[in-house]
Write a protein that binds this DNA or RNA. Structure first.
Lengths: 234, 234
DNA sequence: CTCGCGAATATGTCTATACATATTGAACCG
DNA sequence: CGGTTCAATATGTATAGACATATTCGCGAG
């Protein structure tokens, strides 16, 4: 049984997404919807407030509720877990740990110093492999001040991304996406020509304001797409 | 005056984001919060339902409300309007229309055929310029079946992105982000070496299920970053 | 000791009502 | 004709109560 407020919400959302109600269109008032659905105003209000929160309508007192004009920016981007992504494609996933060391932050690198805080860093380099072929190169720094358990973790057994996900819940994250050419060392590891275009995803995460980790993942440009959608899919 | 349900919501969100309530932590029941804030259950419920909808807590009947473990995927990505982005940086913006033609869809290109529908296409190529230097190359197709007015528009005066935004509200969009090497023609237009890494953003938009436009924007890799954030910023 | 059943609990939904608040449009007055 | 006031309107917030539903816990029977 679908709750009534959800049904109202879904129906109106359908009218908007189908284009039947164009941006700017004025929706019926709560009183009208209340009569239309034979329910109380609170129920209608719950549906309409949810649509407003979702950004589908704009509500103005005395004036009414209007279909919002969608904004170009801020779509939802799926940055999937690499392992999950690969297995979802039906390919076998592997992770090769190329290097792992514990070291203090480079004092010339403000970024590292901030990440390390009072402690050392764990620096990792690893290769994500899909079906026997290199899929992504990952360079990661983990703050031991934030995650002391990382000193003893075996990242060859469990890739650092998955390990962190299980051990350290984060509260904030920032991802930065750019394109760079492959340097010789990187090109060799990814089995590409030097200078080949790579999609670079750099992500930093924090827990309660304290930096936890910074990771830079390099994907061969033609092998990987990031997709962001705005639309009927829920 | 901040509404009470919002205050409750904000306070609990603060406890979660600060890490005071770790993932898995059980929040007080609605009855307890109701006593704590001296309000009715509906008010507490509104706050907690909103937090649940936002994915910050998970609610289970009889069991209670628990702080959710954040998921890696689905962050919010800002895909800004290029013109707005450049002027925000304090640089002068310019758009150079390199080519514009009206033509039927290429029957060998299923993508174009779908976009065109029963009508022709407008095919445009233009260069976004920031402070006198090339910033992005844009190739765009507009469906005249969906937007007949595009046949008469002057895209040299108003860049097609802005023109479309003003004339055709869309209801769905999909963006695809990848990295490619610059081909000779592209490299020359962007004043780069052949093979230089480019960030490619391809976006398609629909209105009420009908394809409206498809645009491919190529940015010099080192000149532009896309940033996605998840965190306390609201 | 285990299984099944019923009671307790926490959330989920909904109603009817009340008052607050922003905004608009129209009536009124200078 | 222009500005001010005021009432109508639509949303915003909140209450108290009611019943529904899923899930867990504990008790008692086998």
């Amino acid at each position: 049984m679908i709750p009534l407020h959800q049904r109202i919400r879904d129906e109106i959302e359908g009218l908007i997404r189908s284009g039947a109600w164009a941006p700017g269109h004025r929706a019926p008032s709560e009183t009208e919807l209340m009569a239309q659905y034979g329910c109380s105003r609170m129920t209608v209000n719950k549906a309409m407030s949810a649509l407003a929160e979702a950004g589908l309508i704009v509500r103005r007192r005395r004036a009414g509720s209007f279909v919002a004009r969608p904004r170009v920016h801020s779509t939802v981007l799926d940055i999937p877990d690499i392992q999950a992504e690969i297995t979802a494609r039906g390919e076998t996933y592997g992770f090769v740990l190329l290097a792992a060391e514990r070291r203090p932050a480079d004092p010339d690198d403000g970024d590292e110093v901030e990440l390390a805080g009072e402690g050392d860093l764990v620096a990792l380099r690893g290769l994500h492999v899909a079906g026997g072929r290199p899929f992504a190169l990952e360079d990661r720094l983990i703050s031991l001040a934030a995650v002391p358990e990382a000193a003893a973790a075996d990242f060859a057994a469990e890739p650092p991304g998955a390990w962190l996900l299980h051990h350290v819940p984060w509260t904030e994250a920032e991802s930065r996406i750019s394109a760079i050419g492959a340097e010789p060392a990187v090109a060799e590891l990814l089995a590409l020509d030097v200078g080949a275009a790579l999609l670079a995803v750099e992500r930093r995460t924090w827990r309660a304001g304290e930096p936890v980790t910074r990771v830079r993942q390099l994907f061969p440009g033609e092998a990987y797409d990031l997709i962001a959608r705005f639309g009927p899919a829920r």
